[in-house]
Write a protein that binds this DNA or RNA. Sequence first.
RNA 1: GCCGGUGUAGCUCAAUGGUAGAGCAGCUGAUUUGUAAUCAGCAGGUUGGGGGUUCAAGUCCCUUCGCCGGCUCCA
Length: 637
Amino acid sequence: MKVVLPDGSDLSVAEGATAADVAEAIGPRLAKAAIAAKIGDRVVDLATPVDEGDQVAILTPSSEEGLDVIRHSAAHVLADAATRLFPGTKVAIGPAIKDGFYYDFEFPEPVGEDDLPRLTEEIQRLLGASLPFERREVSKEEALALFKDEPYKLELIRDLPTDAVISVYRQGEFLDLCRGPHVPDTGRIGEVGLLSVAGAYWRGDSDNTMLTRIYGTAFPTKKELEDYLRRMEMARQRDHRRLGRELGLFSFQDEGPGFPFFHPKGMRVVNALLEYWRKEHLAAGYEEIRTPMILERTLWEHSGHWENYKDNMYFTVIDGVDFAVKPMNCPGGMLVYKSEQHSYRDFPLRMAELGQVHRHEMSGVLHGLFRVRCFTQDDAHIFCLPGQVEDEILGVIDLIRRMYRTFGFDKVHVELSTRPEKSIGSAEMWETAERALAAALERAGLEYVLNPGDGAFYGPKIDFHIEDVMGRTWQCATCQLDFIMPERLDLEYVGEDNQRHRPVMLHRVVLGSIERFLGILIEHYGGALPAWLAAVQVVVVPVADRHAEYAQAVKSALESAGLRVDVDLRAESVSKKIRDGEVGKVPFMLVVGDREVEQRSVTLRTRGSKETRSYALAEAVAFIGGECEVPGVASGA
RNA sequence: GCCGGUGUAGCUCAAUGGUAGAGCAGCUGAUUUGUAAUCAGCAGGUUGGGGGUUCAAGUCCCUUCGCCGGCUCCA
């Protein structure tokens, strides 16, 4: 009989052959590397028989799918080790995930990070034993009997549809309910490392039991595992919380959990970022407004926030009247809109607001600048005619992509989120809004993923995810279409027909949260921000005290050009000052000594490079000034 | 919020239940330095807060606060 290989060629194999036989027939090296196979779209065990005409691909650990198989198998070995070391342990689930795997357990005694070395040792012993993975298909009754002492497995089995094929895998002493596939034996898993222990609810529901989750990862070779651990360590080195402190940008205090404090250098960066932001928004036809932090409760009741968002809001009482601290800027922006009459001729009206919002996040989710309780949204509300909606969305998409490219975020992936359970407005309104967003995406030629039920409570949204240098993705920009709040807050405009109409409103952010975006940038650049964003752009390094006066003159010249400059007058060696400048991620350092004083010049050293170059002072100011120029469209000046 | 971990000087970390220490940073002084750490000295602490056990607590117990990791990528 014949099977079809991925390159389209046919391969003859004996009747009753398995995927492993196919691998063998292709070549001994492939057979050795093979860990699973793909028949059609199905990933299967190597022991799976193939049929006449099947599309067969052999999986090795070098593919994503192959890695998933070895990691999922590693999870089973972890469960084997855990149940051996801690008798009485109940097992839950253990899938492969991005970059690794986990397994959830209910242990009879507390198990923590300290137990990982023992578990790792046991895993290594099991890997060395090359225990075969044996698959068996069983009836539901048999499955229930096999797992009678495993409450979580029983729950899973009971939830399976009646016609489901139930398979179990055994390796060593460990039997697990599992769809598979797995590697042929534990000797084929490669190198396994356990990473961390954490709590996790059974099925992610906080009403359920808290289980102990052990995270790990597996790679075909020790080298790859070590590379991975090194990359993790690199990401740890780039942690914005650490860099933020070391670079003196911001801090967190016990007195304000989740509320960041920005220090002078942090504000320099924020202000540079906002300068860029304002340039882009001015050019894109936005006006800027600012609305109050605290507004009356009744407003939030009208807008629907009270009903849908009050668990995340902070409240206060002023002169016996209930007020709320704003968690979003839209109602305030809409009051600005309502403060005067509008004509269709005003549209589209683009009102931006760098609005600081407060949201009561659960204490356990706070995380540096990434998840805070107080942040600045680069918000805007666009009021327009129904017929202008698509063009406005396209304009927003264009602005988002242009601004992201400035930071090297060239890859963007897009999601369209639809009506959530908790929401307001009629079904028709939602349908119209969802269709409009989809249409704009089609016109922009952007591919997107549908994310049902993840929209805001007042309307569907398009989310933009960026990818940083370490391959992590972040949702930042969002563009939401809202027919509902204009209705609830009774917004109007006078149309061409001299009648009153309801405007359509778009909510959108580009950077999302200024604080979070800064955190992303810090990690993306490893603290070495582009010169235009750097808190200190230039350090002037006098060689000896007698050069201090000239160094100050150099500083003044640079500052006159609008640059952020420090001069290092400490009685330290040049080497020490250079080192501190490098550690401080300063883009440019200017060394001035006898030579420079005499020639009215400077010697420039650029961050990360040992090479130096001499400039006349005026040339240096022009050059560095150019390098530090805030990007963006020319403001016309 | 929940589970686990953790909390010692500004930072990174030491200290069998028995006198709280080091490096860096800071300050003072000396040094005047040419591209990633000059030398010396000084100062720095209610060991997160509160309570308890003990002759004795940084260390053990309780409680509270902060921080760190995690809380469906579904056998």
